[in-house]
């Protein structure tokens, strides 16, 4: 499934034009991205939570050469599906 399929779904299920469907779907993902970019977690009830995690710097190795390197501190995005979604996948 891609964004195009989601747009198609919106178009078929809601009485709005394809152009409007596309605009709404694009806007939804853009706002989620903007919020995460500013460091805010995003919670979608019934679906799951997008959570940002700050990682400390750590020592790692280049798996190809074996050289020890410093992995810098970073912020990463994780997703935890809601209990409802987990249950739906396993019903």
């Amino acid at each position: 499934m891609t964004k195009a399929d989601i747009i198609e779904n919106v178009y078929e299920n809601v009485g709005i034009s394809k152009k409007e469907s596309a605009k709404i779907v694009e806007t939804v993902f853009e706002i989620i991205k903007e919020k995460l970019e500013t460091g805010e977690n995003v919670k979608i009830s019934g679906f799951g939570n997008f959570t940002l995690r700050d990682k400390d710097p750590r020592r790692g190795r280049n798996p190809q050469t074996g050289d020890e390197i410093e992995i810098s501190a970073r912020r990463v995005l994780t997703f935890r599906p809601s209990q409802v979604l987990k249950r739906m996948l396993n019903n």
């Binding site: 499934m1 399929d5 989601i6 779904n9 919106v10 299920n13 809601v14 709005i16 469907s21 709404i24 779907v25 939804v28 979608i44 019934g46 679906f47 979604l85 739906m88």
Partner: peptide
């Protein structure tokens, strides 16, 4: 309604 359709179609 549309936001719900989006997440429901993903589910």
């Amino acid at each position: 309604v549309i936001v719900d359709v989006i997440f429901n179609s993903m589910i």
